[in-house]
């Protein structure tokens, strides 16, 4: 890649977010040393703000509830502010490990965190399934944080008959056991699958009136019906999975 000899000529592309890769990093390094360029970029960013505002629209109605639910269960970053230290001009991405609950909120909102390559395919399929539920026009969120610090969050779409269930903050199951998620309704509890750590689980073919979600520790690989006592339980309103 031919890098320009006069990097400050990149102020326009930078203000428009039209740089990427090495060129972006290089220009940002240059910015930290060039006060004139910072002024120029700042002025140009005022112009791009006008372009941004001209694109204003109306957020989808269901988004508010989902975001506010995510906010209720998501810890904030703590930002150390070293006195006198210059901040990097570009926004730093959210550090994935910063908060315990970031993973579930991320999953809730379909954020892809960086993972090892071999997990990506499976997670992408999972992420698509999750995104599909989240983007369904009828999707709704519910959740609860328990006194022991564990949380259960459910985002469901009655039309798709699917829900994304995320359980966090549970102690690891004893060795030789797995956490299994159940839907307890009028009849026999139905297994929704095994929980893999704090990864969200996509429950399919849901329907009928509410009931309750429960997690139990079951012998490795799960059981046909629950044998352990519920570790967490979340009562569902009848509307969660449709009538």
């Amino acid at each position: 890649m031919n890098l320009p000899l006069r990097p400050h000529s990149l102020a326009g592309p930078y203000a428009l977010d039209a740089l990427d890769g090495r060129e972006l990093h290089r220009f940002e390094r240059h910015l930290s040393r060039c006060a004139r360029c910072r002024d120029q970029v700042r002025a140009l960013q005022t112009d791009t703000l006008r372009l941004a505002r001209a694109a204003s629209g109306t957020a989808p109605a269901g988004m508010r509830e989902r975001v506010l639910t995510a906010v209720r269960i998501t810890a904030q970053e703590t930002v150390p502010r070293p006195a006198g230290a210059r901040r990097a001009p570009r926004l730093v991405p959210v550090a994935a490990a910063a908060a315990t609950l970031a993973l579930i909120a991320a999953a809730l909102l379909g954020v892809q965190l960086s993972r090892t390559q071999e997990r990506l395919d499976r997670e992408q399929a999972q992420a698509r399934a999750i995104a599909q539920v989240l983007a369904a026009p009828d999707s709704r969120a519910t959740g609860e944080r328990f006194p022991d610090g564990s949380t259960v969050v459910v985002v469901s779409s009655p039309n798709l008959r699917r829900a994304v269930v995320t359980v966090t903050g549970l102690q690891d199951p004893p060795s030789g056991k797995d956490h299994q998620l159940w839907l307890a309704g009028a009849g026999k509890p139905r297994s929704l699958g095994l929980l893999n750590g704090e990864e969200p689980l996509v429950a399919r073919d849901l329907g009928g009136p509410g009931g309750a979600l429960a997690v139990t520790a079951e012998p490795d690989g799960g059981s046909p019906s629950p044998t352990g006592r519920p570790l967490v339980q979340l009562a569902l309103e009848s509307t969660v999975f449709g009538k």
Binding site: A70, T78, V94, A99, L134
Partner: peptide, 23 residues
Amino acid sequence: PAQSEEVAQEVLLELWRGAGRFD
């Protein structure tokens, strides 16, 4: 629209998480 909603949600949650970074 679906992708836009996903990214917008991600941004709004990042505002909550990273509000302390605003200078």
